[in-house]
């Protein structure tokens, strides 16, 4: 093939998969090291910080729970941006990015749900309350699983990427509506009486570890994300090579 396919010329050189892989190879060890350092500092501070006068030791769950919840939303934003990349610029790396982010998002959301539940037991006396936040995070979790299921159901990765891109965007538009409606529903059915950790009332003693943990989680996400993207690219390369092998065997016969 002397003539490169037109599709290739359209993609800017900077973002072609080979360049991307080279970039990942350089970046990921640093990113991973940074993540480990941040976690070391963040975890140390989390455990060294004073107990809450009301919640005692259980307040430390917050240092995992809040960053995970924050990432569950950021991850969807990353996917929505990738979906735009897929639909508007038809960029194959955007496909890969969205696909790689979905399981991560589901994972972080699950962590947020589980830690929230663990936190809820001592605080509220029950594993689960239909609190507005919990409910909307749970719905988000369902949406992640739906997206993963959709991706799995389609054989052709390009078409799967386009289909899920549309769904991601529809979901993205809907998330504020879902959040709003769940809050409405919640105030109607049961007034929110639980103590909330958010708002500016938080003590700096808790804030610092929380911020560092949030950054650490974000770095963890990016590390995992680029590694997952790398794996996905390699997986597709293998698929291409396999088809080539099958074809050349067919020609030889």
């Amino acid at each position: 093939m002397s003539e490169p396919s037109l599709a290739i010329r359209k993609f800017s050189d900077l973002a072609n998969p080979t360049r991307f892989l080279a970039l990942v190879a350089i970046v990921w060890p640093w990113l991973a090291a940074l993540t480990v350092c941040l976690f070391a500092v963040g975890l140390y501070l989390s455990f060294a910080s004073v107990d809450d006068y009301q919640q005692g030791q259980t307040v430390r769950i917050m240092y995992v729970h809040v960053p995970a919840a924050w990432l569950s939303m950021m991850c969807y934003t990353v996917m929505a941006l990738s979906a735009l990349g897929t639909l508007v610029w038809r960029h194959p790396l955007a496909d890969v990015s969205a696909k790689a982010a979905a399981p991560l998002g589901a994972g972080f959301t699950l962590v947020a749900l589980i830690t929230g539940s663990l936190w809820g037991k001592p605080m509220w006396g029950t594993w689960w309350v239909w609190d507005a936040r919990l409910t909307s995070v749970f719905v988000l979790f369902l949406m992640y699983l739906g997206l993963i299921a959709l991706n799995r159901a389609m054989d052709d990765p390009t078409r799967a990427a386009k289909a899920s891109a549309i769904l991601i965007l529809v979901g993205f538009v809907n998330i504020p509506i879902i959040k709003f409606s769940v809050e409405w529903w919640n105030t109607l059915h049961q007034p929110a009486s639980v103590m909330r950790m958010d708002g500016p009332t938080i003590d700096p003693a808790f804030l610092w570890p929380l911020l560092i943990m949030a950054v650490a989680f974000t770095m963890l996400f990016f590390t995992l994300h680029i590694l997952a993207m790398r794996n996905e690219i390699l997986r597709r390369r293998i698929a291409v090579l396999r088809r080539h092998a099958a074809r050349s065997a067919g020609e030889a016969a």
Binding site: M1, P4, S5, A7, I8, F11, N16, P17, P92, I233, R236, R237, V240, H244, R247
Partner: peptide, 8 residues
């Protein structure tokens, strides 16, 4: 007529 060069 050939294998298109894929981006991968």
């Amino acid at each position: 007529t050939g294998v298109a060069e894929t981006v991968w």
